[in-house]
Amino acid sequence: MTWTSFHHRGDVLRAVITQADARRDGLLPMDVDGVAETFRDELTLLGALALRWHTRLAGRIERELMTQPMDLEGAVLAAWQATAAELPGVRAILDRYRAEPLDAEMARAMTTSAAKEHVLLSVMAGRASARDDGAAAAGERIAERARASLTVPAPRAASGSPSLVERLRAVLTAA
């Protein structure tokens, strides 16, 4: 992948995330300009969105643990909720295609992705080690608790230009 194609891929992925956050219908926005040329298929795009979610979640957990190092599980819950509030469309897509994968390959990928997320949650919350057989189950319970008390604001009406926060988020995301 060339430097130019890497940046183009990032631009397209940001456009997909913006569209997903606006729609929040859980469907992959395959109609966004550049998606067909940049991502081979739905699974490739879903993988990129899952990677964005996992990366953002891991970073959030690290930041939360710096501010509340004595409450590991509380930090992990807060990080999951903050990430879900920041990427509501991506979370909706991941949830939908985990529940309703398009094929067996997507089902395997989403099962693996969810298990890795759950292990991360349980390990960072101090509930298990990465090698524990019950780590994924413990992390799934943490995710369910975070989801149960999640409040995500309704999508804003689309305006002609992005807000200052949206522009800053795009700059920070690109970095």
Rank of each mutant, 00 (worst) to 15 (best):
F39S: 02
R40H: 13
E42W: 01
T44C: 11
L45N: 00
L45P: 00
L46T: 02
L46G: 00
A48Y: 00
A48T: 01
A48N: 02
A48P: 00
A48F: 00
A50V: 02
H54K: 09
H54M: 04
L57P: 00
A58G: 14
G59N: 07
R60P: 01
E62Y: 11
R63V: 12
L65I: 06
Q68W: 04
Q68S: 09
M70R: 14
E73R: 13
G74V: 09
A75T: 01
L77P: 03
L77F: 02
A79I: 06
A79L: 03
W80F: 05
W80G: 00
A85M: 14
A85F: 02
E86R: 08
E86Q: 13
L87Y: 06
L87V: 07
P88D: 12
R91N: 12
A92V: 11
A92F: 04
L94W: 02
L94Q: 03
R96E: 12
R96I: 04
Y97P: 00
E100G: 07
P101C: 08
P101Y: 10
D103W: 02
D103A: 06
M106H: 04
M110A: 05
M110N: 11
T111Y: 10
T112W: 07
T112G: 10
S113P: 01
A114D: 13
A115D: 13
K116N: 09
H118L: 03
H118G: 03
V119Q: 09
V119K: 06
L121Y: 07
V123G: 10
V123E: 11
M124Q: 15
R127M: 11
A128R: 01
A128L: 02
A130H: 09
D132C: 13
D133F: 13
G134W: 14
A135M: 07
A135C: 07
A137Y: 09
A138P: 09
G139L: 03
